[in-house]
Design a binder for these strands. Structure first.
Length: 779
DNA sequence: ATAGGGTTAG
């Protein structure tokens, strides 16, 4: 057909372009554009056509072309302005959108109720509440107040700026509300963390009989996921199905997100495989959910499948991969992930940077962690906290504190997480008083300690031998109406380590029963452990028999309890039972059985176990294992062989292993070896009076009273017994020291005086004397 | 005009 001969006016081309706008038919529109240009300036420089072209390219989101055509216009009008502002606003060039809005106004064009929503969207994106209020005022003055489009945009804008009251007021004042208005209100609450309120609006909407859209359900599911609201979320899914809503990427992702947050991975998978189109977000959701539930292999497999689908990993995918590497201490995988980030420019993302730092720290590569941190340009609170936590974990309290000040100098105020790390850093470095100082400092600066703060302090004190203080803190925490959770209960139980704390342990047990936490395996494990340490092996056995768990740590707790009570036969029986159940014992199991053999003098059994452990169970012997065998050998008098074993170990001997051999010197009157060992020990642990006690025991049994009293004076002179954190064990050691001398010491009177005073002091400090102490007093 | 995903503390 010969188009050139036909009389087609410019307005026909305009109509055709409008059709392309409706259809978003970019290619056809470009053909028409070409034809217009070929037709000459009468067509191409026609204001109506030029405006239509701007609108067409703007609606097709072709920013550059739309911009160029717009700037070439001799005369702008309301429509071209509206198109270009809308385009910028849609594409996220919010500043340009608002500049356009101002310029348009200055040039005498009054933005209409189609432009105002776009301007408001830009205000929301930039969180410019002042500008937003101005636009609001303009809209009211122009009489757009009743327009649902404008009002819905206002709700959204105020929500994005975090001013909930204004959003709610605009919403409440609306005379008619369509579904978008309702959706905006729901989204507004979800985005500001007010999930209950979001659900409330959803239910109001249901009562009003408004049909939900995908946006409604997706937002409702977000709220359910954030609240871990199992029932509500399932209802949301049902509504989506019943309303016949199309399972698009966003709705599908919301459903998957909900299921994975509440731990229903199978349900999440079901939805995932039912979705016809899946994008990066959908895949990422499933991947991160696998990582979160420890299924690293499945997660990595999903990554491979994702690549097969020709989808590119983004920063969220890599965050999951790095987090998986951190969880499994897989530095090889972590490095691969890190390198992928560098190659693909994902390492500039702050979240990726945090996971990278965390990954290297958890893989025991603090030097790399630090380097990655130093190379970041943008540092947010979480990134600082990640490095703080890494230093704290290692007990590098000085570095932690330095970083804590540095972040403040760089204008990032710390939060509770940061404070918690500072406290942890001190505790891990045995700086109890400093930790407590920070704890009160944070409170005086107005930071409420969180449950984690309390738990950190409680378990730290317990691990540093201040169990009694830890128990008091646990009680104080409850007085402040802070509900303990499983982790904090376990840390409180770990503070109960001797008969003196049995009562507290029992009361925590009561709490556990009242709050029906009994079926948590970690809690049951800690209970067994607590009762065993507090001298109540029968109670430990009762708890153990009540729970049917085949988990190794649970068995380990009971076996170590038997070992502690010298019940080697029971320990060995349970060990054999465990093997019959097909559970592979670990290094902890062997430590307990070996030490049980040591206490019971079961030399042959112990040595055989030690051999089996290495050859059959492929457990690399630790210092503790060697320690057990050393005490086993020294018990039956093989002090030389024990010493040979120590010298042959692949470790530098620690104070504990030397101490156990030193203790044996008392039984076997080996003063020479005792002196040799003590010399090492005094250097290793100058603060531990136990070593002096052990040596004096050896002297005492050999009748060398001159040496005994020399050592006693030395202990007093060094003020060791009064050192901070002086524990019951040390006092117990002192008692033994005096006991050792009582049979033939020339001044028995004095010894009993001292003993009585010591026992009274013990009681004053809240300790209940052990049976052996009481026996000493009675004899 | 409204919608989905990732990182830190016990």
């Amino acid at each position: 057909m010969e188009f050139d001969n036909l009389q087609i006016g410019p307005e026909i081309y305009g109509e055709l372009l409008q059709g392309c706008v409706y259809e978003r038919a970019l290619f056809t529109g470009q053909q028409i554009h070409a034809r217009i240009l070929k037709n000459g300036e009468f067509y191409s420089r026609n204001e109506y056509i030029e405006t239509k072209l701007v609108i067409f390219y703007a609606k097709c989101n072709v920013l550059e072309v739309a911009n160029r055509l717009f700037h070439r216009l001799r005369k702008h009008n309301l429509f071209s302005w509206a198109a270009i502002i809308g385009l910028h606003s849609r594409m996220g060039f919010s500043e340009d959108a608002l500049l356009g809005f101002c310029e348009m106004h200055e040039n005498g064009f009054l933005p209409d109720n189609f432009v105002v929503p776009n301007a408001l969207k830009a205000c929301g994106a930039l969180q410019l509440i002042g500008f937003g209020r101005g636009v609001h005022g303009y809209a009211v003055k122009m009489g757009f107040g009743g327009c649902v489009f404008v009002a819905s945009s206002l709700v959204d804008m105020y929500g994005k700026c975090g001013v909930l009251e204004y959003a709610r007021k605009v919403f409440d004042d609306m005379l008619e509300r369509n579904v978008v208005a309702w959706n905006s209100m729901i989204v507004c609450y979800v985005q500001n963390g007010m999930n209950e309120e979001a659900m409330g609006v959803f239910y109001d909407m249901r009562v009003e009989g408004i049909e939900p859209t995908r946006v409604t359900v997706a937002s409702f599911l977000s709220a359910s996921a954030n609240l871990y609201a199992f029932k509500e979320g399932k209802q949301g899914h049902s509504i989506a199905v019943l309303s016949g809503l199309e399972l698009d990427n966003i709705l599908g992702s919301s459903i998957i997100n909900f299921y994975s947050k509440v731990g229903l991975i199978e349900e999440a998978e079901l939805v995932f495989f039912r979705m016809l189109e899946k994008d990066v977000v959908t895949w990422n959701l499933l991947i991160s959910s696998y990582v979160q539930y420890g299924q690293v292999k499945t997660a990595l497999n999903m990554c491979r499948l994702m690549r097969k689908e020709k989808l590119r990993f983004d920063s969220v995918t890599l965050t999951s991969v790095l987090s998986a590497s951190a969880d499994t201490s897989n530095v090889k995988l972590g490095k691969e992930g890190h390198c992928y980030c560098i190659r693909n420019n994902l390492d500039s993302d702050v979240v990726v940077a945090s996971s990278t730092v965390d990954m290297y720290a958890k893989c025991e590569r603090i030097d790399y962690a630090r380097r990655v941190f130093d190379f970041t340009t943008q540092r947010d609170l979480v990134l600082w906290n990640t490095l703080l936590a890494a230093y704290a974990e290692l007990g590098l309290s000085g570095e932690t504190l330095k970083l804590f000040y540095q972040m403040q100098l760089e204008g990032v105020p710390p939060n509770v997480v940061s404070w918690n790390s500072v406290i942890l850093g001190f505790l891990r470095n045995n700086q109890i008083n400093e930790a407590k100082d920070i704890f009160s400092q944070m409170q005086s600066l107005g930071f409420q300690p969180s449950l984690i703060t309390w738990t950190t302090l409680i378990s730290g004190l317990a691990q540093n031998g201040s169990g009694y203080e830890a128990i008091l803190l646990f009680q104080k925490m409850q007085e402040l109406w802070i509900q303990p959770n499983i982790v904090s209960i376990i840390s409180a139980l770990s503070a109960c380590i001797d008969i003196a704390s049995l009562e507290y342990g029992r009361s925590i047990h009561g709490y556990i029963i009242r709050h029906e936490l009994f079926h948590s395996i970690p809690i049951a494990t800690s209970l067994v452990d607590m009762y065993a340490k507090c001298g109540s092996i029968d109670q430990a056995k009762k708890v153990f028999n009540m729970i049917l768990s085949k988990e190794l740590p649970f068995y380990n707790a009971m076996i170590s309890g038997y070992a502690l009570h010298g019940q080697a036969v029971e320990a060995l029986a349970l060990f054999n039972h465990l093997k019959e159940e097909g559970i592979e014992p670990d290094n902890i199991t062997f430590t307990s059985v070996l030490s049980a053999c040591g206490h019971a003098g079961l030399v042959n059994e112990g040595l055989e176990l030690f051999g089996d452990m290495i050859s059959k169970h492929h457990v690399k012997p630790s210092m503790e294992h060697y320690g057990c065998v050393v005490s086993l050998l020294s018990r039956c008098g093989d002090l030389d062989e024990a010493l040979q074993l120590i010298l042959a170990m692949p470790f530098e001997p620690d104070a504990h292993i030397l101490g156990s051999l030193l203790a044996a010197c008392k039984e076997h009157h080996d003063i020479e070896l005792g002196k040799y060992l003590s010399n090492h020990l005094f250097k290793l642990e100058p603060e531990n009076s136990g070593n002096y006690v052990a040596l004096s025991n050896a002297y005492a049994t050999a009748g060398r009273w001159d040496e005994v009293s020399k050592l006693r004076d030395l202990i007093k002179e060094k003020g060791l017994r009064k050192s901070p954190g002086c524990s019951w064990i040390q006092i117990g050691g002192e008692l033994n020291f005096f006991v050792a001398g009582d049979a033939s010491h020339p001044n028995t009177e004095e010894i009993y005086m001292t003993l009585a005073l010591l026992v009274r002091e013990m009681q004053f400090m809240g300790y209940v004397p052990m049976v052996s102490n009481a026996e000493v007093l009675c004899s």
